[in-house]
Protein backbone atom coordinates (compact mmCIF):
# COMPACT_ATOMS: atom_id res chain seq x y z
CA UNK A 1 0.00 0.00 0.00
CA UNK A 2 1.31 3.47 0.78
CA UNK A 3 5.08 3.44 0.75
CA UNK A 4 7.03 5.58 3.12
CA UNK A 5 6.37 8.88 1.49
CA UNK A 6 9.86 10.27 2.03
CA UNK A 7 11.73 7.61 0.07
CA UNK A 8 12.12 9.56 -3.15
CA UNK A 9 13.40 12.92 -2.00
CA UNK A 10 15.98 14.08 0.49
CA UNK A 11 14.04 17.33 0.89
CA UNK A 12 10.83 15.65 1.98
CA UNK A 13 10.81 15.29 5.71
CA UNK A 14 11.20 18.49 7.62
CA UNK A 15 14.23 18.52 9.88
CA UNK A 16 13.41 16.88 13.18
CA UNK A 17 13.08 19.39 16.01
CA UNK A 18 15.92 19.39 18.49
CA UNK A 19 14.00 17.59 21.22
CA UNK A 20 13.47 14.58 18.91
CA UNK A 21 9.88 14.41 20.12
CA UNK A 22 7.85 11.66 18.50
CA UNK A 23 4.27 12.50 17.57
CA UNK A 24 1.96 9.53 18.21
CA UNK A 25 -1.57 10.86 17.68
CA UNK A 26 -3.58 9.73 14.67
CA UNK A 27 -6.05 12.58 15.14
CA UNK A 28 -6.03 16.25 15.93
CA UNK A 29 -9.31 16.86 17.71
CA UNK A 30 -8.52 19.80 19.93
CA UNK A 31 -6.01 21.52 22.11
CA UNK A 32 -7.73 20.16 25.20
CA UNK A 33 -5.96 16.81 24.80
CA UNK A 34 -2.58 18.16 23.65
CA UNK A 35 0.33 18.72 26.01
CA UNK A 36 2.42 21.87 25.85
CA UNK A 37 5.17 19.77 24.31
CA UNK A 38 2.85 18.52 21.58
CA UNK A 39 1.65 22.04 20.82
CA UNK A 40 5.23 23.28 20.54
CA UNK A 41 6.04 20.34 18.30
CA UNK A 42 3.27 21.34 15.90
CA UNK A 43 4.52 24.93 15.88
CA UNK A 44 8.12 23.80 15.29
CA UNK A 45 7.04 21.44 12.50
CA UNK A 46 5.08 24.29 10.91
CA UNK A 47 8.23 26.38 11.11
CA UNK A 48 10.07 23.88 8.95
CA UNK A 49 7.20 23.75 6.46
CA UNK A 50 6.98 27.53 6.16
CA UNK A 51 10.07 27.52 4.01
CA UNK A 52 8.33 25.38 1.39
CA UNK A 53 6.07 28.28 0.48
CA UNK A 54 9.10 30.39 -0.36
CA UNK A 55 10.41 27.96 -2.98
CA UNK A 56 9.79 28.43 -6.66
CA UNK A 57 8.22 24.97 -6.73
CA UNK A 58 6.04 25.12 -3.65
CA UNK A 59 5.62 21.41 -3.17
CA UNK A 60 7.11 18.50 -1.25
CA UNK A 61 6.25 14.81 -1.63
CA UNK A 62 5.64 14.16 2.07
CA UNK A 63 2.08 12.90 1.54
CA UNK A 64 2.44 11.62 -2.00
CA UNK A 65 0.04 8.73 -2.52
CA UNK A 66 -2.08 9.75 0.46
CA UNK A 67 -5.67 10.91 0.16
CA UNK A 68 -7.05 13.76 2.23
CA UNK A 69 -10.83 14.22 2.26
CA UNK A 70 -12.20 17.61 3.21
CA UNK A 71 -15.63 17.03 4.71
CA UNK A 72 -17.17 20.41 5.31
CA UNK A 73 -20.60 19.80 6.77
CA UNK A 74 -20.68 23.52 7.56
CA UNK A 75 -19.69 26.35 5.23
CA UNK A 76 -16.16 27.65 5.25
CA UNK A 77 -14.00 29.46 2.78
CA UNK A 78 -10.60 30.16 4.20
CA UNK A 79 -10.20 27.07 6.35
CA UNK A 80 -11.23 24.77 3.54
CA UNK A 81 -8.97 26.50 0.99
CA UNK A 82 -6.11 26.55 3.45
CA UNK A 83 -6.41 22.80 4.11
CA UNK A 84 -6.76 22.11 0.42
CA UNK A 85 -3.66 24.05 -0.45
CA UNK A 86 -1.75 22.55 2.46
CA UNK A 87 -2.64 19.04 1.28
CA UNK A 88 -1.62 19.74 -2.30
CA UNK A 89 1.68 21.30 -1.19
CA UNK A 90 2.35 17.96 0.52
CA UNK A 91 1.45 16.17 -2.74
CA UNK A 92 -1.64 14.46 -1.31
CA UNK A 93 -4.74 13.86 -3.41
CA UNK A 94 -7.77 15.70 -2.09
CA UNK A 95 -11.47 14.98 -2.09
CA UNK A 96 -13.98 17.64 -1.23
CA UNK A 97 -17.45 17.55 0.15
CA UNK A 98 -19.65 20.40 1.25
CA UNK A 99 -22.98 19.93 2.95
CA UNK A 100 -24.86 21.45 0.05
CA UNK A 101 -25.50 18.95 -2.70
CA UNK A 102 -24.23 16.03 -0.66
CA UNK A 103 -25.90 12.96 0.79
CA UNK A 104 -26.26 14.94 4.02
CA UNK A 105 -29.25 16.67 2.47
CA UNK A 106 -30.69 13.22 1.78
CA UNK A 107 -30.65 12.40 5.47
CA UNK A 108 -27.47 10.34 5.72
CA UNK A 109 -25.82 10.44 9.14
CA UNK A 110 -22.43 12.05 9.62
CA UNK A 111 -20.91 8.68 10.52
CA UNK A 112 -22.29 7.01 7.40
CA UNK A 113 -21.12 9.86 5.18
CA UNK A 114 -17.62 9.75 6.66
CA UNK A 115 -17.38 5.94 6.47
CA UNK A 116 -18.54 5.90 2.86
CA UNK A 117 -16.00 8.47 1.80
CA UNK A 118 -13.30 6.74 3.81
CA UNK A 119 -14.15 3.48 2.03
CA UNK A 120 -12.69 5.01 -1.14
CA UNK A 121 -9.28 4.70 0.47
CA UNK A 122 -8.87 7.92 2.39
CA UNK A 123 -6.03 8.45 4.89
CA UNK A 124 -7.07 11.72 6.51
CA UNK A 125 -10.52 13.23 7.01
CA UNK A 126 -10.66 16.93 7.72
CA UNK A 127 -14.00 17.66 9.38
CA UNK A 128 -15.86 20.93 9.78
CA UNK A 129 -19.22 20.44 11.48
CA UNK A 130 -21.86 22.55 13.19
CA UNK A 131 -22.20 20.01 16.02
CA UNK A 132 -19.73 20.14 18.89
CA UNK A 133 -17.98 16.79 19.23
CA UNK A 134 -18.73 15.51 15.70
CA UNK A 135 -15.05 14.83 14.89
CA UNK A 136 -14.61 13.14 18.28
CA UNK A 137 -17.50 10.81 17.52
CA UNK A 138 -15.91 9.91 14.16
CA UNK A 139 -12.42 9.49 15.60
CA UNK A 140 -13.73 7.01 18.15
CA UNK A 141 -15.19 4.80 15.45
CA UNK A 142 -12.87 5.16 12.46
CA UNK A 143 -9.27 4.07 11.92
CA UNK A 144 -8.48 6.97 9.58
CA UNK A 145 -6.91 10.16 10.87
CA UNK A 146 -9.42 12.83 11.79
CA UNK A 147 -8.54 16.50 11.87
CA UNK A 148 -10.99 18.89 13.47
CA UNK A 149 -11.42 21.92 11.25
CA UNK A 150 -13.94 23.44 13.66
CA UNK A 151 -16.70 21.66 15.55
CA UNK A 152 -19.74 23.64 16.63
CA UNK A 153 -18.93 25.89 19.56
CA UNK A 154 -16.22 23.58 20.85
CA UNK A 155 -12.76 23.77 19.27
CA UNK A 156 -10.95 25.01 16.21
CA UNK A 157 -7.49 23.69 16.92
CA UNK A 158 -5.70 24.69 13.72
CA UNK A 159 -6.92 28.26 14.14
CA UNK A 160 -5.52 28.45 17.66
CA UNK A 161 -2.26 26.84 16.53
CA UNK A 162 -1.84 29.39 13.75
CA UNK A 163 -2.70 32.17 16.18
CA UNK A 164 -0.02 30.96 18.59
CA UNK A 165 2.43 30.52 15.73
CA UNK A 166 1.80 34.10 14.66
CA UNK A 167 2.17 35.44 18.20
CA UNK A 168 5.45 33.59 18.61
CA UNK A 169 6.68 34.88 15.28
CA UNK A 170 5.80 38.50 16.09
CA UNK A 171 6.56 38.69 19.79
CA UNK A 172 9.23 36.01 20.12
CA UNK A 173 7.37 33.74 22.52
CA UNK A 174 4.13 33.12 24.37
CA UNK A 175 5.02 32.48 27.99
CA UNK A 176 4.28 35.46 30.21
CA UNK A 177 2.19 37.35 27.65
CA UNK A 178 -1.25 38.70 28.43
CA UNK A 179 -3.78 37.93 25.70
CA UNK A 180 -7.29 39.37 25.53
CA UNK A 181 -9.92 37.52 23.52
CA UNK A 182 -12.84 39.83 22.87
CA UNK A 183 -16.39 39.17 21.78
CA UNK A 184 -18.77 36.24 21.65
CA UNK A 185 -16.84 33.85 23.86
CA UNK A 186 -19.90 31.70 24.59
CA UNK A 187 -20.35 30.56 21.01
CA UNK A 188 -16.74 30.65 19.87
CA UNK A 189 -14.65 27.58 19.12
CA UNK A 190 -11.73 29.89 18.31
CA UNK A 191 -11.89 31.27 21.85
CA UNK A 192 -11.94 27.85 23.50
CA UNK A 193 -8.98 26.51 21.53
CA UNK A 194 -7.02 29.70 22.12
CA UNK A 195 -7.71 29.73 25.84
CA UNK A 196 -6.58 26.12 26.20
CA UNK A 197 -3.49 26.46 24.03
CA UNK A 198 -2.32 29.81 25.38
CA UNK A 199 -2.73 28.68 28.98
CA UNK A 200 -0.72 25.54 28.30
CA UNK A 201 2.09 27.66 26.88
CA UNK A 202 2.08 29.94 29.91
CA UNK A 203 0.17 33.02 28.75
CA UNK A 204 -2.39 34.87 30.83
CA UNK A 205 -5.75 35.00 29.06
CA UNK A 206 -8.54 37.50 29.69
CA UNK A 207 -11.84 36.96 27.90
CA UNK A 208 -13.81 40.13 27.33
CA UNK A 209 -17.45 40.65 26.48
CA UNK A 210 -20.90 41.19 27.95
CA UNK A 211 -22.09 38.55 30.47
CA UNK A 212 -24.61 37.20 27.95
CA UNK A 213 -21.71 36.26 25.66
CA UNK A 214 -19.18 35.26 28.35
CA UNK A 215 -20.27 32.31 30.51
CA UNK A 216 -18.95 32.62 34.04
CA UNK A 217 -17.99 28.94 34.09
CA UNK A 218 -15.36 29.57 31.41
CA UNK A 219 -12.93 30.49 34.18
CA UNK A 220 -12.66 26.73 34.81
CA UNK A 221 -10.59 26.67 31.62
CA UNK A 222 -7.99 28.86 33.29
CA UNK A 223 -8.84 32.30 31.94
CA UNK A 224 -9.99 35.50 33.60
CA UNK A 225 -13.12 37.44 32.69
CA UNK A 226 -13.60 41.15 32.13
CA UNK A 227 -16.80 42.84 30.99
CA UNK A 228 -14.96 46.05 30.09
CA UNK A 229 -12.64 46.26 27.12
CA UNK A 230 -11.42 49.66 28.28
CA UNK A 231 -10.27 48.20 31.59
CA UNK A 232 -7.93 45.68 30.01
CA UNK A 233 -6.44 47.65 27.13
CA UNK A 234 -3.46 48.83 29.16
CA UNK A 235 -2.34 45.37 30.21
CA UNK A 236 -2.51 43.32 27.04
CA UNK A 237 0.23 42.22 24.64
CA UNK A 238 -2.18 40.63 22.22
CA UNK A 239 -5.82 41.40 21.49
CA UNK A 240 -7.75 38.83 19.52
CA UNK A 241 -11.05 40.22 18.24
CA UNK A 242 -13.67 37.60 17.49
CA UNK A 243 -16.23 37.90 14.76
CA UNK A 244 -19.64 38.81 16.11
CA UNK A 245 -22.45 36.91 14.44
CA UNK A 246 -25.54 38.88 13.69
CA UNK A 247 -27.95 36.16 14.79
CA UNK A 248 -26.74 36.80 18.36
CA UNK A 249 -28.55 40.11 18.30
CA UNK A 250 -31.79 38.59 17.10
CA UNK A 251 -31.62 36.12 19.98
CA UNK A 252 -31.37 39.00 22.45
CA UNK A 253 -27.86 38.32 23.65
CA UNK A 254 -27.06 41.93 22.99
CA UNK A 255 -29.33 44.90 22.25
CA UNK A 256 -27.83 46.20 19.01
CA UNK A 257 -24.80 46.20 16.74
CA UNK A 258 -24.22 49.86 17.62
CA UNK A 259 -24.16 49.23 21.32
CA UNK A 260 -21.87 46.24 20.88
CA UNK A 261 -19.49 48.17 18.73
CA UNK A 262 -19.33 51.08 21.17
CA UNK A 263 -18.62 48.79 24.11
CA UNK A 264 -16.42 46.11 22.58
CA UNK A 265 -15.25 47.33 19.17
CA UNK A 266 -11.56 48.08 18.68
CA UNK A 267 -10.96 51.48 17.10
CA UNK A 268 -7.95 53.79 16.84
CA UNK A 269 -8.82 55.63 20.08
CA UNK A 270 -8.83 52.41 22.01
CA UNK A 271 -5.70 51.22 20.23
CA UNK A 272 -3.85 54.33 21.43
CA UNK A 273 -4.40 53.23 25.00
CA UNK A 274 -2.70 49.91 24.37
CA UNK A 275 1.04 49.35 24.43
CA UNK A 276 2.64 50.50 21.23
CA UNK A 277 3.50 47.08 19.83
CA UNK A 278 0.22 45.41 20.80
CA UNK A 279 -0.67 42.67 18.36
CA UNK A 280 -4.18 42.85 16.86
CA UNK A 281 -5.61 39.55 15.63
CA UNK A 282 -8.85 38.39 14.08
CA UNK A 283 -9.81 34.90 12.89
CA UNK A 284 -11.89 36.36 10.07
CA UNK A 285 -14.08 37.08 8.34
CA UNK A 286 -14.11 40.62 9.75
CA UNK A 287 -17.24 42.69 10.20
CA UNK A 288 -15.53 46.00 9.45
CA UNK A 289 -16.85 48.75 11.63
CA UNK A 290 -18.32 46.34 14.15
CA UNK A 291 -15.58 44.52 16.03
CA UNK A 292 -12.73 46.29 14.23
CA UNK A 293 -12.54 49.61 12.43
CA UNK A 294 -10.74 49.50 9.10
CA UNK A 295 -7.81 51.64 10.22
CA UNK A 296 -7.05 49.15 12.97
CA UNK A 297 -7.68 46.08 10.84
CA UNK A 298 -5.30 47.32 8.18
CA UNK A 299 -2.85 49.14 10.46
CA UNK A 300 0.67 48.21 11.58
CA UNK A 301 -0.45 46.41 14.73
CA UNK A 302 -2.66 44.05 12.77
CA UNK A 303 -1.35 40.62 11.80
CA UNK A 304 -4.57 39.38 10.26
CA UNK A 305 -3.15 38.47 6.84
CA UNK A 306 -0.07 36.97 8.43
CA UNK A 307 -2.42 34.68 10.39
CA UNK A 308 -3.87 33.44 7.11
CA UNK A 309 -0.41 32.88 5.63
CA UNK A 310 0.73 30.97 8.70
CA UNK A 311 -2.40 28.89 8.61
CA UNK A 312 -1.01 27.10 5.61
CA UNK A 313 2.18 26.02 7.37
CA UNK A 314 0.23 24.93 10.44
CA UNK A 315 -2.14 22.82 8.35
CA UNK A 316 0.74 21.26 6.45
CA UNK A 317 2.32 20.38 9.77
CA UNK A 318 -0.88 18.90 11.16
CA UNK A 319 -1.60 16.85 8.02
CA UNK A 320 1.95 15.56 8.08
CA UNK A 321 1.95 14.72 11.79
CA UNK A 322 -1.34 12.85 11.91
CA UNK A 323 -0.29 10.65 9.01
CA UNK A 324 2.98 9.96 10.85
CA UNK A 325 0.93 9.19 13.96
CA UNK A 326 -1.34 6.74 12.13
CA UNK A 327 1.28 4.42 10.72
Amino acid sequence: MAKKASSSSPRTDPPAPADAFVWTRKDLLGLDELSAQEILHVLDTAGSFEEVSTRSIKKVPALRGKVVALLFFEDSTRTRMSFELAASRLSADTLQMSAKGSSVTKGETTLDTARNIAAMGVDVLVIRHSQSGAPHMLARQMPESIINAGDGQHEHPTQALLDMYTIRQRLGGIEGLTVAIVGDIAHSRVARSNILGLRKLGARVIVVGPPTLVPGAITAMGCEISHSLDDVLGEVDVINMLRIQFERFSSNLFPSVREYSQSYGLNSQRLKRCRKDVLVMHPGPINRGVELTSDVADGPNSCILQQVTNGLAIRMAVLYLVTQGNR
Partner: peptide, 9 residues
Protein backbone atom coordinates in the same frame (compact mmCIF):
# COMPACT_ATOMS: atom_id res chain seq x y z
CA UNK B 1 -22.02 24.56 33.75
CA UNK B 2 -18.27 24.36 33.32
CA UNK B 3 -18.37 21.02 31.45
CA UNK B 4 -20.92 22.29 28.92
CA UNK B 5 -18.92 25.47 28.41
CA UNK B 6 -15.74 23.51 27.81
CA UNK B 7 -17.47 21.12 25.40
CA UNK B 8 -19.23 23.90 23.54
CA UNK B 9 -22.61 22.31 24.17
Amino acid sequence: GAVAVRLGL
